[in-house]
């Protein structure tokens, strides 16, 4: 692909912990994300997936290495600039969801829009729409404590994609989902990548998700050990078709 990457990271190293508990969680990782692509990041537990994702998402600073997002180097940016970069370009789905316990599903999505300056009725409309997309149209007013793990995860997905960010970083977005909902979320992420030309990087162990990927990157022990393109990755019409069928079934 000759497209200009929206994100490129070079030689990322990250040390975590102190003293005896010090770990080299990432040992020199390169990564590029292109618009229109759904990339899967696969690897065993503890291999550094979450660490990599949070560094790419500018939430965690790398110990070494450079990251460029939408043409901007992140090295040397202050916390305020990094926050701006996050709200301008990145949607993040946390492995542990990190929903606001005192806000209901709709409000959890709305506050993410509010943070980036989308307010009022249009934002409320949009929040409702994405919650419908993740199959939670009937759970808008439920608080996280009244949602199942899978439902909470889908709220987290809705929150990350509501503003249509150029980069979606999803940390095990289907881990808590049953097969049907897992497929629905993956189809949604694939659709965003294809139709809106966004870059999606999703961490997963789940072989069921392979079918949605354009590219699979494998990580082990803080190092990329392989990357494969999947020519059989679904294209846009197929996904649209799939979504339609699922809606008809549901």
């Amino acid at each position: 692909m000759t497209q200009k990457p929206i994100l490129s990271a070079k030689n990322i190293k990250k040390e975590l912990g102190k003293g005896a508990g010090r770990v080299l969680a990432l040992r020199g990782v390169d990564m590029t994300l292109n618009p229109g692509e759904l990339t899967l990041l696969m690897g065993p537990s503890g291999s550094g997936k979450t660490t990599l994702l949070s560094i790419l998402g500018c939430i965690l600073a790398p110990t070494k290495g450079t990251i460029k997002i939408a043409g901007q180097e992140t090295g040397g940016l202050n916390p305020e600039d990094l926050a701006e970069l996050r709200r301008a370009h990145i949607g993040y789905i946390f492995q542990s969801y990190n929903l606001f316990p005192t806000l209901n599903a709709l409000e959890n999505v709305r506050i993410a829009l509010d943070v980036i300056g989308q307010k009022g009725y249009p934002a409320a409309q949009r929040a409702e729409e994405v919650l419908h997309d993740v199959g939670l149209g009937h759970r808008l007013k439920n608080f996280p404590s009244n949602l199942s793990g899978g439902e909470q995860q889908r709220v987290a997905v809705a929150r990350a994609i509501a503003s249509s960010p150029e980069i979606v970083l999803a940390d095990e977005p289907t881990a808590a989902l049953d097969s049907e909902n897992g497929h629905a979320v993956m189809a949604l992420l694939a659709k965003i990548a294809k139709e809106q030309k966004r870059s999606v990087l999703a961490v997963t162990h789940d072989p069921r998700t392979l079918g949605y990927a354009d590219r699979v990157v494998r990580i082990e022990d803080g190092q990329i050990i392989g990357e494969e393109r999947r020519p059989d990755g679904l294209d846009a019409p197929e996904i649209a078709d799939l979504t339609k069928r699922r809606k008809a079934n549901g």
């Binding site: 916390p79 926050a83 970069l85 709200r87 990190n98 506050i111 943070v115």
Partner: peptide
């Protein structure tokens, strides 16, 4: 979390 979502410290 708000900060991670990109909120300014002012927010």
């Amino acid at each position: 979390t708000l900060r991670a979502l990109g909120s300014s410290s002012g927010y």
